[in-house]
Each structure stands twice: as structure tokens, then as C-alpha cells.
Design a protein around this nucleic acid. Structure first.
Length: 424
RNA sequence: GGAGGGUUGGCUGAGCGGUUGAAAGCACCGGUCUUGAAAACCGGCAUGGGUUCACGCCCAUCCAGGGUUCGAAUCCCUGACCCUCCGCCA
């Protein structure tokens, strides 16, 4: 959520900045509703004031043993009038809140202009795409030949966009998870965390998936409003919801591994082949909760933590800064890490690292006490994948493939593979 | 699934339907004292919103949402969560 004061006082400037990301803010409607709200609020508060003071007078008169009949008469109509304006104010406030909850974050000034993926800016590259003495295959072919990756059976068990792994490949998948979590806890200062995979609607509102993106989520049937997590960002970030964190506790750095569930509505026909886009995938997620003045430095650092995973695995990648039009709803700035996939001869997203500023914190009421002012202030939140495990497995298969279709295990993972050096 | 108890400020914890936005303690901030610190003593100290140049004034908030009442932290209903006991269970 944006600062309501900013929205109220400088709607034109806000609209101009949101336009960069392709969001049209209806300033006229907003200004109109705000004026109406202000008027109603003043009226309501005046009536409340009258109610309070007369109630107090009645109490005092009663205490003195006086007759209060005439006082009761004087306030008889007040109740009804007050109920009327209170109801109208509530409805209006609800309308304004609904609009505010649907407004995305403002892109940071360093975010490049642009409408979509094509306008993202490459920041740097690391590593060289491998040169093969043969035509490299993609992970689907490799997995099928190894008989360790099976989409048909997964489709039978569930449906499309699920996968089944076997044997050494399944082990490699698990090894990646352990390797990543160990790296972030051991070297990057994150606290290992275990979180619920089902979350309530309030948590999803906090991080920004709701109310706008319900169609992307799997919702459980039944009495509770529970959803499968689309990313561990939701449970991890909501740790600080409705909390005032002590200044000494910041920054909080959490890492966890979870499955992620996405309906992928609207991506029909996109990446239908292989493990790239699934309804269920594993991800290691990093979340940081920091002091406001530290968040830009933290974004660079967090991105570096994700890059380290790729570097240790010796996978070539590039870092791109998302343009304004490609930013996620809650983000004020995002770097994507894209890994080289020989099977597609393309760089593909494998991590997304974002600074949310106080956008999520405001929705969550996540605050810290600034020692300078002694006042509670909103924290800043960040997150990044470190990394998407399924896609990392794909990248390893395709980059480490050998002429006979076997896969060399990257050195960094050997310790986790129980002696397996080649998946074959 | 059944029975009972609970949820109050940063924390602990009082609270009678009416000057209770809320006692007390801790923590925190300022001051006195001290060579310095501690202790002691004095004072301050919730959050959000509205209004004002400002002092201030007003409104809301005691888990959430309804209700009763001139008036609700306090009474009633519903829900969430926590605790205790019984049953079931990986």
C-alpha cells in the first residue's frame, strides 16, 4: 500500500510515476471520494463529540442524584443521525481502501522505463555459455533418455504441469536444496526457518498477492480461507506482520525451502514443455526485513547472495534490471537472475530479487522503533529466490550434459550426492 | 470432537456500565545527585486520524466483527487465537 497521505496530497505526481509501470490511476475519482470522505468524517466526529459529552453529562448528573430525563430527551435523535453518517462513512472508507489496496508500488527512480520483458536492462554477465562438440539436448530429452524424469506419469497422477523425478536425478534435486540452504545459513547470515505451506488471506494481502491476483493461487475448499503458498515470500515476510521489531533485531534474514504452488492461469501454451513452468515446484527463498535506510544496500547484497549460488554451481548467468512495466505489483525495484539454458540457447529467469520499500510493511503493519525518534516506523522488506530449484536442476542438466546423455554432478554438490558423480 | 479458562500499552499486569486512553511495575527518555557509573529521587513516555502558524483541541482504538445502552475494556452473540482436561491421532 502506498502512503495514504502521499496519495491524498500529491495524486498527480503519484499517477505520473505509476504510469511508468502502465497503471492508470483514476485521480479524479480518488480526489472526489477523498473530499467526500473528509466532509463525512468531520461530520461524524462532530456528532460523536456531542454524543460523548452528553453521555458524560448524564453520568455526572446521575452521580449527583439529579433527574436526567430532560437530558435523555435532548440526545434522543442523536443516535439515529450518528448511525446514518457512520454507516455512510464506513461504506465510503471501504471503497477508498479497496482502491488503495489495488494500487501497485511506485517504481524507484533507478528503474528503467519500458513496457515489458523486452525493455529490461542487462546489468552484468557472469560465466561463458559452454561450447559443446555436439548438439546439446534440452532437459526433457535428457531426462527421458535417463528414464529419471517422467511427465506422462505425473500427468496421470495429477495432470499437466507436474513432474516426477527418479533415482539420481531426484537426489540431485534434493542435493540442490540442501546446498542452497547451507550456503545461505552458513555464509550469508540467514536464519533457517520452517514455515506453513498454507496461508490465510490476511497474509496474502500483506505481501500483495491479494486482492488482485487470486486467480494465480490455489485456494482450499472448506471452512477456512486457506491458500497454498505461491512462494515462501508469503509466510516468511508475514512473520513480522502486526509486529514492532526491536531496532537491535534488524536486519532479520530468513531462509527457507518450500514447495510453491501456482495456478499459472493465463499462461496457457507458455513453456508447456518440461520443468520450467509447473504448478508445483521447490524454491529456496531469502527474505530480509531491514531499516528503511538500509534497503537499497540490502537489495544489492541479496542479489549477490543469489548470484553466489549460480557461481558456486558454475552456471553462466546474467543480471537484468526489470523495467517499470515488468515490475511485480509490490516491488519498487527488481533484479532478475537469468541462467543460460543450452537447450533453449537463451537466458531464462531463475531468481527474482526485489526491494518492496515500505509497501508490504504498510499493508502488514510491520514496524520497528526508530531509536532516533522513539516512534514506530514501517520497516522495509526484500526477498529473492536463492534459487528456484526446478529451474536450477534444468540448468545443471543442460549445462553439464555429456555426449552420451549423462550429467556430470557439479563439484559443489558432490558432498550431497552420496558418492554419485555422474547421473546416468 | 467434548468441557472449562483466557486475550488490556514495548513487556508484566489491575480494571466497579459513567471525569478509565486505561492503576501499578518493568523497560525507555530527560533531570537532580556523583570524579564517572550504579543506586536513590523528580519528571516524561501508546497508536492512527482530523484540525491549528503553534500551545492545543477533537475522533477512533483494550483480539476481530456484530448487538444492548444516553454511555461499553466492563454486559450479550459470533469468530480467531492461546492455555488446561477428556477423546482420537502421524
Amino acid at each position: 500500500m502506498l502512503d495514504p497521505k502521499l496519495l491524498r496530497n500529491q495524486p498527480e505526481q503519484v499517477a505520473a510515476q505509476l504510469k511508468r509501470r502502465g497503471f492508470e490511476l483514476n485521480v479524479e475519482q480518488l480526489v472526489g471520494l477523498e473530499a467526500e470522505r473528509k466532509q463525512l468524517q468531520i461530520q461524524t466526529q462532530q456528532l460523536q463529540n456531542r454524543r460523548n459529552s452528553s453521555a458524560k453529562a448524564i453520568g455526572q448528573a446521575k452521580a449527583r442524584g439529579e433527574d436526567v430525563q430532560h437530558l435523555l430527551q435532548a440526545v434522543s435523535d442523536l443516535k439515529l443521525r450518528l448511525e446514518g453518517v457512520e454507516t455512510r462513512l464506513e461504506a465510503l472508507q471501504g471503497e477508498i481502501d479497496a482502491i488503495a489496496m489495488g494500487i501497485p508500488n511506485i517504481p524507484h527512480e533507478t528503474v528503467p522505463d519500458g513496457a515489458g520483458e523486452a525493455d529490461n536492462i542487462e546489468i552484468r554477465r557472469w560465466g561463458e555459455p559452454p561450447v559443446f562438440g555436439f548438439e546439446p539436448r534440452d532437459h526433457v530429452d535428457l531426462g527421458a533418455a535417463l528414464e529419471q524424469m517422467d511427465f506422462e506419469t505425473a500427468a496421470k497422477i495429477t495432470g499437466s504441469r507436474f513432474s516426477l523425478l527418479n533415482g539420481a536425478l531426484a537426489r540431485l534435486h534434493r542435493a540442490l536444496i540442501h546446498f542452497m540452504v547451507d550456503l545461505h545459513t552458513g555464509e550469508h547470515g540467514y536464519t533457517e526457518t520452517y514455515v506453513p505451506y498454507l496461508v490465510n488471506a490476511e497474509s496474502l494481502r500483506g505481501t500483495g498477492q491479494l486482492p488482485k491476483f487470486e486467480q494465480d493461487l490455489f485456494k482450499l475448499a472448506g471452512e477456512h480461507d486457506y491458500y497454498l503458498i505461491p512462494t515462501a515470500e508469503v509466510p516468511l515476510t508475514n512473520i513480522v506482520r502486526n509486529r514492532i521489531v526491536g531496532a537491535e533485531a534488524l536486519p532479520c534474514r530468513y531462509v527457507t525451502h518450500t514447495p510453491c504452488f501456482r495456478s499459472e492461469a493465463g499462461s496457457y501454451g507458455k513453456d508447456t514443455r518440461g520443468m520450467i513452468r509447473q504448478h508445483q515446484f521447490e524454491k529456496v527463498e531469502m527474505v530480509q526485513v531491514v531499516r528503511p535506510q538500509d534497503s537499497w544496500q540490502a537489495l544489492e547484497q541479496l542479489t549477490g547472495h543469489a548470484e553466489t549460488v549460480l557461481q558456486r554451481l558454475n552456471l553462466p548467468y546474467r543480471v537484468v534490471a526489470l523495467c517499470a512495466g515488468d515490475l511485480g505489483f509490490s516491488a519498487t525495484k527488481t533484479y532478475d537472475l537469468e541462467v543460460w539454458l543450452p537447450g533453449q540457447k537463451k537466458y531464462r529467469e531463475i531468481s527474482s530479487c526485489s526491494n518492496f520499500g515500505d509497501f508490504q510493511a504498510r499493508r502488514m503493519k510491520a514496524r520497528w522503533r526508530d531509536p532516533q525518534t522513539g516512534k514506530p516506523e514501517f520497516v522495509h522488506t526484500l526477498n529473492g529466490s536463492g534459487l528456484a530449484v526446478g529451474r536450477t536442476l534444468v540448468a545443471i542438466m543442460e549445462n553439464y550434459q555429456q555426449p552420451d546423455g549423462s550429467i556430470r554432478v557439479p563439484e559443489a554438490l558432490l558432498a550431497y550426492m552420496g558418492g554419485v558423480e555422474i547421473v546416468e
